[in-house]
Nucleic acid binder design. Structure first.
Lengths: 167, 167
DNA sequence: CGCATTTAGATCGCACACGATTTAATCACT
DNA sequence: AGTGATTAAATCGTGTGCGATCTAAATGCG
């Protein structure tokens, strides 16, 4: 059994808490030591925490993020929104059609460039966005994680994401 | 437009870097300040980094995690594996059937309790697991994130996940 | 102008996630 | 032993993510 070869452009993004390279024989617990798994499973946990709150707004987690993104700036293109969310049209187009069907956004081809689709929030969409902004305030600190340490965690994750995306 | 009511059991899980409660008028940038989004988008970035490496093993990201989980301990039940991955049978059953179809695992009903399905790695599955363990070693540090800071980040994420899951 | 190239979205197929429900087996308790 | 509750896994429907491909519009360039 051969180990997979090292890539030519040696990106190394701190993936785990143990020093690479790993030997197959190493006795490690992947789900404790792999940062990628901590990020993955924390994402699942966030999704589950948000879901009951977003259900009342009739939004999924991604739809919630999209609505917040649209509320930031009116009349964005699909690509523009995609840059904020780190997603592309293959994910956003169906999502935006669902939001349109729900009466929260309008999709219109640009007059200057017919390739471009511009998204605007409807009145109902703006109301939903305002409610969506209140959702995080509902999740209230129970134990000892301070706002400061969360801010720090957020900074670290953003730096990591930037590295993962190639700087 | 009504703000959503505070829940009776006031869980607050530090969700963002600004102090709640948020007013709808607050001029914030959700995608910079929301920890949930940093976790979400970092997860997407991890997925994309891993994909080309896992493609060579013929595994998806979740299949990779599942194989590593199965390699830790032989003859696990679906529920046992689910506890490691924070997933349930509605996600794992189809995934395990795909791994079975690929010849990497075997699924067998327990003789003692016919409700239980036990999963074992085949020889091919163990080979794949050994290769899978080498994958993180391929992702090599390019810039200034040290193993120590990654270990710290990992600890913080795990603590956060624990809180999100209700302690 | 003519035509290849590029670009923005859309479409398609596959694999997750997850709430809700179903099935079948076991347990609890009388 | 009987039966209602519980449990483990499977099934189903909806909504992401994403690689690959497609379409149509705009651009570049001789």
């Amino acid at each position: 059994m051969s180990s997979v070869a090292i890539q030519s452009r040696a990106i190394y993004i701190a993936i785990m808490t143990q020093t690479p390279p790993l030997q197959p024989e190493a006795n490690l617990d992947p789900f404790e030591d792999f940062l990628c798994f901590s990020v993955y499973s924390t994402g699942l946990a966030f999704n589950r925490i948000y879901k009951p709150l977003l259900d009342r707004l009739g939004l999924t987690y991604l739809q919630y993020l999209a609505i917040l993104g649209l509320a930031q700036k009116d009349d964005q293109t699909v690509s523009e929104l995609g840059e904020k969310l780190f997603l592309e049209s293959n994910t956003l187009t169906p999502l935006l059609k669902r939001l349109e069907a729900a009466g929260l956004v309008e999709r219109r081809r640009s007059a200057e460039d017919e390739r471009v689709v511009r998204i605007t929030l409807t009145d109902k969409g703006r109301e939903t966005a305002a409610e969506a902004r209140c959702v995080p305030g509902e999740l209230v600190e129970a134990t000892g994680v301070s706002i400061e340490s969360i801010a720090e965690l957020n900074r670290e994750l953003k730096a990591l994401r930037t590295q993962l995306r190639g700087g």
